[in-house]
Design a protein around this nucleic acid. Structure first.
Lengths: 334, 334
DNA sequence: CTTTCAACTGTAATCGTTTACAACTATCAT
DNA sequence: ATGATAGTTGTAAACGATTACAGTTGAAAG
């Protein structure tokens, strides 16, 4: 494999000159540039970026910590990150943690060892104190699933408002007994959404009923479990507000097996607006998150931190949107 | 940031000794080891791996070239790769190309520039010659979507057999007019599957009918388009064999809008066995690919190549499996 | 003809490690 | 006492680039 020395030798110049040509400095005589380019072509030389990286102490790589990519929600955020990173000349590395703290730590060691210039957390097992400490010594931002009280830039939607809007929509369309399927207090987003859910009910003069709140998780199977519990109630609620689309279709699928038809017999609302929401039968009403924009913004915040670790932490809330589809029964004449 | 020199100074030894301790060589006196460890702890020293990487000329990173991760098929293969890589101490980098040749080239430049030790292609825009040339100078393997005639290790299912088995199953259950929805001749897998489809029909004494073959693509919308064309036929076929689950549910969804009920009115079979196949209403009969195993094996093949670029190219075919679910009508009394 | 300066190019240090080799010590057999 | 040997440790040269600095050249200005 040819190195810069080989090129220099062949072109009859010094390695410094070759380097200048490679980096497009303008203070090299055109004839010399031509000479060097010819040598580069002749040797099919590709600069070894490890050398540059070591000298400049920057890797032009970022790490994205993600619990899973099987959920389309994350893969879309990731795409937003990746495209923004690419445009800025960065490469993206992926740490799929399965929410395992040990795996996560193993991966973010890459940052401490200077293998990446910064980290975006789409979810983390770290507590506020650990995350704050990490972010103090390494450019880092938190997106989607935030950690309360942690000091680092963040970007997400306003989960409280989003849930508020979703449940208000159900209430406005005549649903009174509304169940809530979520992932429990471990997730900040779940906590916020639950608060939004309860606020909306109270606004309508309804006291939240613990027996209609199911902490099962974000997955399809969580939805199935929730449906199982729903079916054990004396009577079905009017509507189910699930905090992910996967959970929502888990509910629908399990109910369908018992012959209960969504929309006609019960309304179901999801969260995220994954492809599945659009494609399912029936198509799912859901709260749409701007996944791509979240990713894009997350990289932007990280880039700022990479350029200046002590720059102020920004906290971005991006707008959500209610996507109406036929899984929710609406009042025809309000 | 502390470096190995700082540690050496504090511990009163040379950098070589510190390095030996870091790499757990056994020829360092225990007392010295203790001294060094103490200094490391005191300085909260983390080795900068860029130095090691440059010296050893190995990055312990691999690149996975993937057209998209929005398709769950790829994210599962990726997971298999990632876990195998992790177990061997490798990190995974992702190149999402959207099947754009330029983006792909930009990314695989990383390999040429020694930023990664090897590349796994889950799909590539390169032709056989270019891919062969690339693989000759850089460890590379091709998985899932292969390139005919390219000389590099491969792992996939036997697409011909898989389609043969799928269509045979439909035929055995009384379906005669079977439509085929696929991505056309550009994809090797599509070509093989079409051959399997045609062979199965001919075995049953049916001459393939061009008007029942739709080259639309692998996506949900491709399925919708195909359904639109199906509906323009004089009469619906008995069954549709789609070469991806997304396409299959696109077909189902579009037919449902016209009130055509899958299973009762027409059977639909998918391919891949994504989650969506299990979760959809109705659940989808499909050809299951061992996505995780494909990923795992792909890394294994790559690892062999990294250790010895001139080792023999292996070509692995992993078993597929027909997953029966209710989207296909079956003969009750054969 | 000298001086000055800009334009170009080369030398060598540097980034943070690893590692070949040398060197030192202590022990032990001769 | 000598030499050999094993066990430790240090010195310095890599790895492949970038870059501060110094040096060379030639043309323009005086």
């Amino acid at each position: 494999m040819a190195t810069i020395k080989d090129v220099a030798r062949l072109a009859g110049v010094s390695v410094a000159t070759v380097s200048r040509v490679l980096n497009a400095y303008d203070n090299v005589r055109p004839e010399t540039v031509a000479l060097v380019r010819k040598a580069i072509a002749q040797l099919d030389y590709q600069p070894n970026f490890l050398g540059r990286t070591l000298r400049r102490l920057e890797t032009m790589k970022i790490l994205v910590v993600v619990p899973t990519i099987s959920n389309q929600f994350y893969s879309r955020v990731l795409k937003g990150i990746q495209l923004a990173a690419q445009a800025a000349g960065y490469h993206t590395m992926l740490a799929i943690t399965n929410s395992d703290a040990e795996i996560e730590q193993e991966h973010i060691g890459m940052a401490r060892r200077k293998l990446v210039d910064g980290v975006i957390f789409l979810h983390t097992t770290m507590k506020a104190a650990a995350l704050t400490e990490f972010a103090a010594s390494c450019p880092a931002v938190s997106a989607c699933e935030l950690v309360e009280e942690a000091a680092l830039p963040t970007v997400s939607i306003d989960d409280f408002r989003a849930a508020l809007d979703g449940v208000r929509f159900l209430l406005e369309n005549g649903h009174r007994r509304i169940a809530f399927v979520s992932a429990g207090g471990l997730y900040n987003s779940s906590r916020c959404r639950r608060m939004g859910y309860e606020r909306a009910l109270r606004e309508a003069g309804i006291e939240p009923d613990e027996s209609l709140i199911f902490d099962e998780g974000f997955t399809f199977n969580a939805g199935k479990r929730a449906a199982g519990r729903l079916l054990m109630l004396d009577r079905l609620p009017d509507a189910v507000f699930a905090t992910s689309d996967s959970t929502a279709i888990g509910v629908i699928s399990a109910l369908a097996q018992r012959g209960i038809r969504v929309c006609d017999d019960i309304s179901v609302m999801g969260f995220d607006n994954n492809q599945i929401a659009e494609y399912y039968l029936p198509p799912l009403t859901t709260i749409s998150q701007p996944q791509f924009d979240i990713g894009h913004k997350a990289f932007e915040l990280l880039h700022d931190k990479i350029n200046d670790l002590s720059c102020e932490d920004r906290h971005i809330l991006l707008p959500h949107r209610l996507e109406y589809r036929s899984s929710v029964k609406i009042r025809q004449n309000p």
